[in-house]
Design a protein around this nucleic acid. Structure first.
Length: 360
DNA sequence: ATTCATAATGGTG
DNA sequence: GCACCATTATGAA
């Protein structure tokens, strides 16, 4: 519970409001004209826009990139699409460097008692998250205002309201609004424990590209940063209630190649071996095949349908050889949260109590 | 009850 | 020995 975020773990190149082209990502002849960065009261610092040459490379890539993807449904309950690649390697690598430098990552740290003593546990990855659940949107979001269909119109003017009577939301051009489509009668915003953060433009363009390729819409962007081979994530499913029924989740890899493991959930530990209705889990369990995907920079995998309900996935630790070890990898997941509980959960476990949030 | 991280174990190549 | 893998246990939320 005493999770906290530690900016101290994060030692990126300096972030600044002013454009700085002395840093890594300048391999083009024409320096991009500086654009004003994104600012928001919920951001700990400003977030630069995508350099125009990258933005261009990205949109070009979208035209010509692998939009088909390989459908993986040859195992029980598995329904994935593997875009290999989704972005060209060079674009993906450059994107990695930009995001690594610009996004406010956190390493969640908490204490657990072991042998009577508090032991500090550092979650083995950095995370950050942006977005709001379906019940709200940020007024200036490019396409979140509608639902991708632009069906916000003058007649369905959403009621403006302060979030939790917090004045910081009034001062921002990106004001949180209640979705017109929400069934709730109340005109007030949901009570969020953690202030939702609008998706910065640097990720908006990416989101659009992913939405177009996967034919889904998303309202959350979760970013994981695996700094070294020591960073990892244990087997789990993204099957939270607030993602709704059979959620589609797209996951884009940038940077170092890491293996992505998929295995069927083990059969429930029943004391009485009364078979389940379909027996479909039979090929799962300990004996089931573990699918191994070497995700490299620019690859994307879409998990949909029955996948989350029945499969686990993980990024295991990797030793890596050589002095450099395993390099850094960024994983961007796009998903859709349906209810405010999802918003609170994501900010709770991926940002925490707001260490360094630039409030006021 | 389930989930997630860590550590220990024993096996494989 | 090393890297990796599967399994088990522990602790906590």
């Amino acid at each position: 519970m005493s999770k906290r975020t530690l900016d101290a773990f994060f030692k990126p190149p300096p972030k600044r409001t002013k454009p700085d082209n002395t840093s890594t990502t300048n391999e083009e002849n024409n320096p991009s004209p500086p654009q004003s960065p994104d600012n928001h009261p919920t951001y700990p610092h400003s977030i630069a826009k995508l350099p125009t040459h990258l933005e261009k490379a990205l949109s070009e890539a979208i035209e010509t990139s692998n939009r088909e993807g390989k459908i993986m449904n040859n195992q029980p309950d598995l329904d994935c699409v593997y875009f290999q690649p989704f972005l060209p390697r060079r674009t993906a690598n450059e994107l990695f460097r930009v995001l690594r430098a610009e996004l406010p990552f956190y390493r969640v740290v908490y204490f657990a008692k072991r042998g009577g003593v508090d032991v500090e546990i550092k979650t083995p990855r950095f995370t950050t998250v942006f977005g709001v659940d379906e019940e709200c949107f940020f007024a200036c979001d490019d396409d979140d205002a509608g639902d991708g269909n632009g069906n916000v119109n003058a007649d369905a003017t959403p009621a403006a309201a302060d979030i939790n009577s917090n004045s910081q939301y009034r001062t921002s051009p990106l004001t949180l609004r209640k979705s017109p489509t929400t069934t709730t009668t109340s005109s007030t915003l949901p009570k969020y424990t953690y202030p939702p953060r609008p998706i910065p433009s640097i990720l908006q363009s990416l989101k659009k590209a992913v939405e177009s390729a996967t034919k889904e819409t998303y309202n959350f962007v979760l970013v994981n940063y695996y700094a070294t081979g020591e960073d990892s994530i244990a087997f789990h499913s993204d099957d939270e209630r607030f993602l709704g029924f059979q959620p589609s989740i797209a996951s884009l890899s940038l940077g170092a190649e890491r293996e992505f493991l998929l295995k069927h959930k083990p059969a429930p530990a029943t004391t009485t071996m009364t078979g389940s209705a379909d027996g479909g889990g039979g090929s799962g369990g300990a004996g089931g095949t573990t699918i191994k995907l070497p995700l490299s920079s620019g690859d994307m995998i879409l998990m949909r349908g029955t996948t989350q309900a029945n499969w686990l996935h993980s990024i295991p630790k990797r030793k890596g050889r050589g002095l450099a070890g395993v390099g850094g990898r960024i994983n961007i997941t796009f998903r859709r949260a349906v209810i405010p509980a999802g918003t609170d959960n994501y900010y709770h476990y991926n940002v925490g109590s707001g260490g360094g949030l630039g409030v006021g």
